[in-house]
């Protein structure tokens, strides 16, 4: 999932305090799972904003809504009419959702309430960790299912740097050295010999922005153009 982290209340308040009305819009997919921008978090933020505006002596109409996903156009249908009653959307989605919000509801303002952090997993309740950098060139098969691009602080694909200490990263003793993890995993798989594979040079050509992926099968079918007769 995409993991998001709510901005500080102060940052959020600063970005909406001059508005007359704002619709707090949650996203029911990734950020709901990581408890940053789902229906419940919308309720919490809206309650905070209502109390704060009252205490600050300003009148801001605060609305609440959550849609299934903010990264698919059709889900916005459910709130399109409601959104018209507000000056801006305070989107609790990831960066993609915030942008789609601005695009689908144009010219309405779409303000982010979260910082989008990474693509990751739930390691424990309330504890999310990055696993993928969306590099567009997956090499996990060669590295025992541990991503050197993501888990290694330097994204090294040819072995560890000299900074690995006690199995931890030079960046922080809190972080595991990706290469020690890779070594231990491959050893369990009796595949240590795979580490001797020829050296790899990373290909960043797929990381040009903005990325796009098209699957012809799912494109809207069109009548084939008849050649002019």
């Amino acid at each position: 999932m995409i993991v998001g982290e709510r901005k500080t209340f102060e940052q959020i308040w600063d970005s909406i305090k001059d508005l007359k009305s704002v619709l707090v819009l949650g996203c029911g997919t990734c950020v709901a799972v990581c408890q940053a921008g789902g229906e419940k978090e919308v309720g919490l933020l809206a309650a905070e904003l209502r109390m704060k505006s009252q205490l600050a002596g300003v009148t801001i109409k605060i609305g609440e809504a959550t849609i299934e996903r903010q990264c698919d156009r059709e889900f916005f249908d459910a709130i399109k009419d409601k959104a018209k009653e507000y000056e801006a959307i305070l989107s609790m989605a990831c960066g993609a959702g915030v942008q789609y919000c601005a695009e689908v509801l144009e010219p309405m303002r779409s303000i982010p309430a979260l910082d989008t952090r990474f693509i990751g997993v739930t390691e424990a309740q309330g504890n999310w960790a990055e696993r993928c950098r969306a590099c567009g060139n997956c090499v996990l098969a060669d590295y025992g299912g541990i991503c050197p691009m993501t888990i290694c602080a330097k994204s090294l694909v040819n072995g560890p740097c000299g900074g690995s200490k006690n199995g931890k990263c030079e960046a922080s003793q809190e972080k595991d050295c990706a290469w020690v993890l890779i070594y231990n995993r491959l050893k369990k798989q009796n595949r240590l010999v795979d580490l001797n594979k020829v050296l790899t040079v990373k290909d960043y050509s797929k990381q040009t922005h903005p990325g796009r992926y098209i699957n012809e099968v799912y494109l809207k079918p069109r009548m084939e153009e008849k050649s002019a007769q």
Binding site: G159, S164, G167, V180, Y183, L192, L195
Partner: peptide
């Protein structure tokens, strides 16, 4: 001076590379 078996072997591996 790598401290663990994994770290040591990886240093050797990287040296070979």
């Amino acid at each position: 001076g790598a401290d663990t078996e994994a770290a040591y072997e990886l240093q050797i591996l990287k040296m070979e590379k």
